[in-house]
Design a protein around this nucleic acid. Structure first.
Lengths: 183, 183
DNA sequence: ACCTGAACACCGTTCAAGT
DNA sequence: ACCTGAACACCGTTCAAGT
């Protein structure tokens, strides 16, 4: 809600910082990206970052939210493709940020902000999955579990190096599993 | 292959260091455990650790190998239990070290030693899975994929906080999937 | 309100020196 | 061969001071 010049400048600066952070986190990973690097890319002094964010974890959360927003607009455009194709697109979208999957899990025990973000993210992802599972005659409990399993498999593919053949075969298997009607 | 007093002392000291490292990594996580903490627990100067290990990642590898050795002797004792019970035991065994699952994935991009260890670990785990899938009429390709999926689900359960009900239901589902004959 | 220079405590790691 | 004290470069973060 930018109301005047001052607010607009603030938002501009903040956007600049978050873009720098997201870009560097994705490219080099969280740990290998120092606050000094982010500051340099955003053209501010390192300690200025602490005016906008409480600490490095909060900056990661801001960057993650940017990436998720991109993902949500992306997925809206492929609604009508077959399920395994949709899954492949999702993986390819997150692949460039695959380092951050591991980072989020690693920081779960260290940071409450990351914990909160992670919880919300999975709720969102489960909702997306469950919506796709709609009208397949699954009970709510079954649908929830299939969503969980689907998420685990996607995370697995993102977290672990794997061969070119492994990915489509796992995804085809998963799509098949998700498409099957309840017994 | 300890051949004399000197070698025995060396092995003793090294064991002491690795035990301290494994204990602290498991309790506090990799990042929150400093080389200084490990050194203090093993009663040496911090830089002494670098006589035995190239760097902190190599120390993590040594600690991981210790934990895996424990796991292997553990799993041998539960061969005759039903599959979902075996899976539950595996998860419970790794749960105390669940922080390290995320750490290994996070350091995959940073350290070649971790990359090597991770590759070997999954080869080992796949072999265990595939052996359990034996004589179920699966093709080698199918068995390999089921092993991959099984691993991903276990990693998912270890990496993500989940409810008390979620775990047994996912594991029962997985055990069922693994037990089913090929079509 | 926003930004900075300087400093702080800590980190993994190295090196020259000891035994 | 094994171990150490001292130092190095870097890290995230804080604080007092500026505008």
């Amino acid at each position: 809600m930018a109301k005047n010049k001052r607010d607009i400048d603030r938002q501009l600066k903040q956007t600049e910082i978050e873009e720098a952070a997201a870009e560097l986190f994705v490219e080099y990973g969280y740990e290998a990206t120092s606050m000094a690097m982010i500051a340099a890319h955003a053209d501010v002094a390192p300690n200025t970052l602490y005016w906008y964010y409480k600490n490095k974890d909060e900056m990661l959360v801001a960057a993650l939210n940017r990436l998720v927003a991109e993902f949500l607009t992306n997925i809206a455009t492929i609604q009508d493709q077959p399920l395994d194709q949709q899954l492949l697109t999702v993986i390819e979208h997150f692949e460039e940020a695959s380092k951050l999957v591991a980072t989020v899990h690693a920081r779960l025990t260290q940071s409450a902000s990351i914990r909160d973000w992670h919880k919300q993210f999975h709720l969102m992802l489960d909702a997306v999955f469950i919506e796709k599972l709609n009208s397949r005659g699954l009970s709510a409990t079954q649908a929830k579990m299939m969503a969980t399993v689907g998420t685990f498999i996607i995370e697995g593919l993102l977290s672990n190096p794997h061969t070119k053949q492994q990915r489509p075969s796992v995804l085809a298997w998963l799509a098949d599993l998700l498409s099957a009607k309840a017994p």
